[in-house]
Amino acid sequence: MDPDRRSQWLRGVLDLCVLGLLADGESYGYELAQALTRAGLGPIQGGTLYPVLLRLERTGLVATDWRAGEAGPARKYYRLTPAGEQTLRAAASDWRGFAGQVGTVLETAVK
């Protein structure tokens, strides 16, 4: 896939993907980056991911706290807030609708 297009698409939905991953439980930055890679969306640069996390925090969709890791440095853990869950639910159904419409247009053209 054209990497430019791919990153362009991703930019539009990265915050939703992060919210989606956090729906499974709290996590920290590097773990989220790895999870995104495993999901086939990576690699996501730290320079892209953390500003998104900061924005989610500022808008109250995620809450954070600092905790010492098992061995490593203190880490900032993110978890969904009720507002974040609500946004995630709404966005998920919006996305399904949107992806369906895009799919319909593209598939009609290919046929």
């Binding site: 930055g29 953390y50 900061l54 890791g69 440095p73 900032k76």
Partner: peptide, 14 residues
Amino acid sequence: RQVVEEARAHTGDS
């Protein structure tokens, strides 16, 4: 302080 620490932790992990 938090943003810098987080970035540091990230480079440490990765």
